[in-house]
Structure formats: C-alpha cells, structure tokens
C-alpha cells in the first residue's frame, strides 16, 4: 500500500459515512411505512396499527405491520432479498425489492433513533 492508496481508503470511508448525516435526523410524528411501486406512492401504513396487505402490480409482495415494525412476509421475486431485509422500525430505514420495483420506507416520527449526527 502506498500513500495514494491510503488517501483513497480515507475518501471511501468518508463517502460511506456521508449518507448518515443526510438522513438520520429526527422528523415530525407519526411514523408511517410508505410503500412505493415503480416510484409512485401506493400506500402509507401507520405503524401503530397491525396490518397485512398484498401488492401485485409488478410482482407479488405481502407486507405485514406488527408491533410497530414492518416487514415483507412473502414475495415472488427470484432472490427473496426483501424478505431477508426486514423488519424495520426507524425513520429512514428502507426495505427494497428491486425485481418487483417495490420499496417500503419508514417516514415521519423520530422515536427510536439511536443517535443524531450534526
């Protein structure tokens, strides 16, 4: 490793930390799980009410809200990554199902944030 390598390593670490300062800031209540398909909002689920909803616009995803957290219970995407990503409960956290172009994002409410970078 030469000096240039270490500089690149340092820049990469700074770049990795950058998104945290942008998003993990407290927001107004109440927390909702916002479901988007193909970029458009299709549903906003309040986290305090348990719910079970299926989406099949671009492929099948079954989203469950339970105990203030949301996760994808079942999906027909080839990799199943979305099922392995959940459950999520904090503002800014996101579950993504790229094959079905579906994302679930927690928006609103600051409760449960571990730390705030200023």
């Amino acid at each position: 490793m030469k000096k240039g390598d270490l500089i690149i390593l340092g820049l990469a670490l700074v770049l990795a930390a950058a998104p945290l300062t942008l998003f993990l800031t407290p927001a107004a209540p109440p927390a909702r799980a916002v479901v988007r398909i193909n970029g458009g909002v299709v549903r906003a689920l309040p986290l305090e009410t348990d719910a079970l909803i299926s989406f099949d616009e671009c492929g099948y995803n079954r989203v469950r809200v339970r105990g203030g957290a949301v996760f994808i219970e079942e999906a027909d995407c080839p990799d199943g990554a979305c099922m392995r990503m959940g459950p999520i409960r904090h503002t800014g956290e996101t579950i993504t199902c790229l094959p079905n172009r579906l994302t679930v994002t927690i928006e609103g409410a600051a409760q449960g944030v571990d730390a705030v970078t200023r």
Partner: peptide, 20 residues
Amino acid sequence: LLTATPQLLLYFTPLCLLSI
C-alpha cells in the same frame, strides 16, 4: 432513480464499507 426513493442512499453505507 428507478424507485424514486432517496432513502436508499442509506444502504450505501454498509455496501460501501463491504466494497472497500
């Protein structure tokens, strides 16, 4: 861009650390 979900940028942090 494809999902219009800017929060996905948060996923860059773990992905970037692993890719280093």
